[in-house]
């Protein structure tokens, strides 16, 4: 059986909130290492990969591999009933029909319990190769969100060009064009506000802004976001969580 308690319900709330517009139904794969999820969006252009390691739960118990097939809209309906600071316990049998969620508020002596029905989901799993990316950019997640939002007002696509001088996000649309360039920058007072660029070779790729704007819904999970790029491979957008990560992969647009 699975029994996993999170210190703060908001971690799972934020994960589901961030991905529910991209993915409707998916399996939460539970084993002794933790809870993982991999799912493509409907158009098969983007891939979500999430891991919450067992060390992020206390206690964590999962005797055998369990796939929890969940409709994310249903899960979100239940998670909205949890306060951010509530303790959240997930429980399921070895061959479950439902997932039990328990929310505990220590300050209010309040206990809420929900069961949501599970579904059989036949999901395709993709092998993600280990990649040495040509460019890795770490920047404040709010900055990345702002850039994607601002440029999406002008265009459907953005080019991301990284070289030793900085990273340039550029777009052009019917009303005109725009760009934002970030140079490497260290904020000594707040490391999370720094922009770091690690580069082995220059890259220039084009992506659909619609997906990037969607990924940025994860911004509340982490103060920083990591963008990993190599020419002609999918972009990796990574948000670190305490004991895991939320990663989005996006296939680049090709040609003119």
């Amino acid at each position: 059986m699975l029994e996993a308690r999170l210190e703060q319900a908001q971690i799972l709330k934020k994960v589901v909130e961030a991905i529910k517009d991209l993915v409707q139904d998916c399996n939460f794969d539970c084993n002794d290492a933790g809870i993982q999820l991999q799912a493509m969006d409907n158009s098969h252009v983007a891939l979500v990969s999430m891991k919450l390691g067992s060390e992020g739960f206390s206690p964590y118990r999962c005797d055998r591999n369990i796939a929890l097939g969940i409709n994310l809209n249903s899960l979100m309906k239940v998670l909205r009933a949890a306060a951010n600071e509530d303790l959240l316990t997930l429980k399921a049998e070895d061959q479950p029909d439902s997932l039990n969620l328990l929310f505990e508020s220590s300050s209010q002596d309040r206990l809420s319990e929900y069961d949501i029905k599970l579904m059989d989901i036949d999901q395709e799993h993709l092998g993600i190769p280990d990649t040495e990316y040509a460019a890795t950019i770490t920047l404040p997640s709010a900055e990345f969100q702002r850039i994607c939002r601002d440029l999406s007002a002008l265009s459907e696509s953005v080019s991301i060009e990284a070289n030793k001088d900085g990273v340039k996000f550029a777009c052009s649309g019917d009303i005109g064009n725009g760009s934002v360039t970030l140079r490497p920058h260290t904020n000594v007072e707040d490391e999370d506000k720094s922009t770091k660029i690690e580069l082995t070779e220059p890259v220039n790729l084009t992506f659909s802004l619609k997906y990037l704007v969607n990924f940025c819904k994860a911004s509340s999970l982490s103060a920083t976001v990591r963008l990993c790029l190599s020419n002609e491979v999918p972009l990796l957008v990574e948000y670190q969580m305490g004991a895991g990560y939320l990663r989005f992969y996006l296939a680049p647009k090709i040609g003119d």
Binding site: G127, P234, K253, D256
Partner: peptide
């Protein structure tokens, strides 16, 4: 206009 390939054309099915 540019083409939007799927993610499956980069990552193989396992």
């Amino acid at each position: 206009t540019s083409n939007q390939p799927t993610i499956q054309s980069f990552f193989q099915q396992r």
